[in-house]
Design a protein around this nucleic acid. Structure first.
Lengths: 200, 200
DNA sequence: GTGCGGATGTGACAACCGTCACCCGGGGGT
DNA sequence: ACCCCCGGGTGACGGTTGTCACATCCGCAC
């Protein structure tokens, strides 16, 4: 019997996934959590064999959750199930030692199989995504990322400067760098590109 | 027995919802479709009692699907199940005569109940969303919407002008209007605001 | 200490953006 | 015929953005 904890913020999807997994005779969904912090508490309390988690959740993301489990050396395998086919996310997930990374686009039947594979100590990584993951790396450094994120939210250069204790000129330099590295025409396009790759 | 067709682009969620609904003894999921066009074909072929559909799907959106069903006067009730708590979406859905509008944030148990309610001819609208829906209306006109959408994708004023056969000056006038109406500081913020309200 | 590299600033320039006042032409009302 | 509104355009203004060359400072290797 594989003991599973489910973390997913959208209640309807959470309930549906739980129903799906409970159809399997060798899988038991112990509990489910609606956000990262709750999931962390349940992980410690229930010590499940496998945690199935979304990435985007309020509070603590699935990636941070995986990192935390690794840091505490808990014997809990992690499977990420997410909408986002962003190479950067997969990379970070692998760095955090997750056992599986599946897309919500993938067929539902695969989830139970992936769960069994990971429980046995194997890995279940979405194949087409695995290819892209090592193709192009994030060219941005920390400053460029911060600045680009704020710019994408509609802040002006001076605005960003005061938030980060930088001069507005420096902010524009970083933005210019980022735009150049991404081959974009302006900050808006750069933001969209970076976001789509999972780099922000 | 309520005969249901399910339309949802994310395979895993589709499978999970299907499993969830099939647990109910009075509900039968006839088939499921991965995009709007496929859903439309299945609606015609199977004549389900109720169509449960997402909004954001490749090809044809759930809203367009609902409109099409209404236009053809098919005896198929529609329930929208979506991530997006955007008042504008609910408004359009109601205009298209849908029977239900639920958020994926809502508890999964509610789905079957909503299905029964709608099948009986009732309505199942997410309550807190229903309030917001009539609160503030979209202040943008068509031109402003088009222009703002393109601007949000990173196009410059002249760029947009040539796409819409307008002068770049006029484009800037429209953008200025839109920014003003939305109380934003620049096009980026205006885009984000409009998008978040479901107005674009 | 010298030298190098990274992080941050500065100043200048051209292009672009946001705003405003105003112009034009074509429908509708009346 | 008259007026007025509406979609679209113009031109000018000041501010912002994107780019680049150059300056400064600090830490670290040698």
């Amino acid at each position: 019997m594989i003991r599973v904890l489910l973390a997913e913020d959208q209640a309807m999807v959470r309930g549906a996934l739980s129903a799906l997994l409970n159809l399997e005779s060798d899988i038991e969904v112990l509990a489910s959590a609606a956000d990262g912090e709750a999931a962390w508490r349940e992980v410690q309390r229930l010590k499940p064999d496998v945690l199935v988690t979304d990435i985007e959740m309020p509070g603590l993301t699935g990636l941070e959750l995986a990192q935390r489990i690794r840091r505490h050396e808990l014997p809990v395998k992690v499977i990420i199930v997410t909408t986002f086919a962003r190479p950067g996310f997969l990379r970070r997930a692998l760095d955090a030692g997750v056992g599986g990374y599946l897309l919500k686009d993938a067929p539902a039947e695969g989830l139970a199989d992936a769960l069994r594979t990971v429980h046995r100590g194997g890995r279940a990584i979405d194949p087409q995504l695995a290819l892209e993951a090592w193709s192009d790396a994030d060219p941005l450094n920390d400053r460029e990322r911060q600045v680009l994120r704020l710019a994408g939210e509609g802040h002006s250069a001076s605005d960003i400067g005061s938030q980060l204790n930088l001069s507005h000129g420096t902010v524009r330099n970083y933005l210019s760098e980022a735009i150049g590295k991404l081959g974009a025409a302006n900050r808006i396009e750069a933001y969209r590109l970076a976001r789509q790759k999972g780099w922000l």
